[in-house]
Nucleic acid binder design. Structure first.
Lengths: 236, 236
DNA sequence: CCTTGATTCGGACGTTACGGCAGGTCGTAC
DNA sequence: GTACGACCTGCCGTAACGTCCGAATCAAGG
């Protein structure tokens, strides 16, 4: 029989943790001395070892309690836990890849903007668009998608600058920006249905909604859309 | 300018989260209306997007606040976060492997014992022994180590049964168990120094300490150690 | 027998990033 | 007039303990 301190030392846990397990009924000491001190026996030790193992696998104390009460369900639970760990691992891998790309390809002075864009796109795209983006990511390669995100904002701001500075719609500069703009839209819109027009309509019809999610006003967005129209109209 | 509800909708966060960010000073609305309602501007939107991005990378709100106040340290912080994510991913992989081995190779009726042993060994081994185990794991292959853990307990209980039932030390049964016992010890002790004797001495000298970590008493352990001696002595 | 230092007890608060609820205010639409 | 929606400020709850508290109890030494 061991005192709480001895048990804690032996199993490399802490006194506080053992008291916690007692509190929630996960591990009750076999007995108490007359003055209330906890005394743990070999069965408690075994149970504690089981608990610690399951904890390292990331199970909650509640799950552990349940599975120790129903050992016949243990196999199912362990399989579920493996699936859970695999999911988490996949998520982590995706995050690592994203972060690596950010650190590899981005201008150190521009991390803030790049970060901004990541979340902006996540918020901007509807769930169905997210799905189609995932599909296109596989087709285009992940780097293309990331750089598209970055280009997107630059393009909007370039267009906005053109509008504000009254850059002539038939200038090379304007044509260049709009060409890139259309190319970007084509890359993202499911191809087939006259992408330029489709993109244009989408931006026009949803400028209110888009401006609610982006740091540009609906007026600004409408302005650049019609400016782009002018540029396209004057294109040879 | 947006109200808190609009901003929450636009960025797919929640009103409660935005209020929380305000509370801890992470994201203060640009202004308040006379009646106290929060009003967020484009700058707030940008900052919120940055916050959400950094959160997906697993940074705490405190870290995020710090890095947004000191953008020049951003690169360092992102690298640190990548290292952190990599570490977690490696841990997850190790756990997955361990759990997979458990599910693949173990008797479903014996999961409890197997789990018990995992933690028992972790607690039993001193940190330096853990290190040497890691080294030997690579030499022997991970499966050998896992099965050794399982064998360990079976062997102790077999030996104990022999002692209790007065199995003759010169019987084949006793010799078989002790041979396995010595083989197991040899596999774990850093080879070279007369492994049998070294293992014997270690168990003998530390029986108190070992019994404090295992569900067997010091008397039982001493009994099996001297029983093993007898078996070896009577060995041809 | 008494003191001292280590251990134990139960209770309460702190941690993270919010979720949820209560009770009150505000503006608008019917 | 009132019903409704969106907003406000608290305050409690979460998981798994860590930390700190005053009070009781233990083991050992003088």
């Amino acid at each position: 029989m061991w005192t709480i301190g001895q048990l804690a030392q032996a199993t490399r846990t802490t006194v506080r943790a053992l008291r916690h397990y007692d509190e929630i009924g996960l591990l009750r000491p076999t007995e108490r001395t007359p003055n209330g001190h906890r005394r743990y026996g070999p069965e408690d030790l075994r149970r504690l070892y089981r608990i610690r193992s399951l904890r390292t696998f990331g199970m909650s104390l509640e799950q552990i309690a349940a599975s120790l009460e129903a050992p016949e369900a243990m196999e199912t639970l362990l399989h579920a836990q493996l699936a859970f760990l695999s999911k988490r691992a996949a998520e982590l891998d995706a995050l690592k890849a994203q972060l690596t790309r950010l650190l590899d390809h981005d201008d150190p002075d521009d991390y803030l903007k790049a970060l901004e864009l990541m979340a902006m796109f996540d918020a901007y795209l509807t769930p169905e668009q997210q799905d189609s983006l995932t599909a296109r990511r596989e087709a285009l390669g992940p780097e293309a998608v990331e750089s598209a995100k970055k280009e997107f904002r630059t393009l909007v701001e370039s267009l906005l600058a053109c509008v504000r500075n009254d850059v002539a719609p038939d200038s090379d500069q304007a044509r260049d920006v709009v060409a890139k703009w259309d190319a970007l839209g084509a890359a993202f819109h499911t191809a087939g249905t006259g992408t330029e027009a489709a993109t244009r309509r989408m931006w026009d019809e949803n400028s209110e909604e888009i401006s609610a999610r982006m740091p540009w006003s609906a007026e600004e967005l409408r302005a650049i859309v019609s400016y782009a129209d002018m540029v396209r109209a004057g294109r040879p």
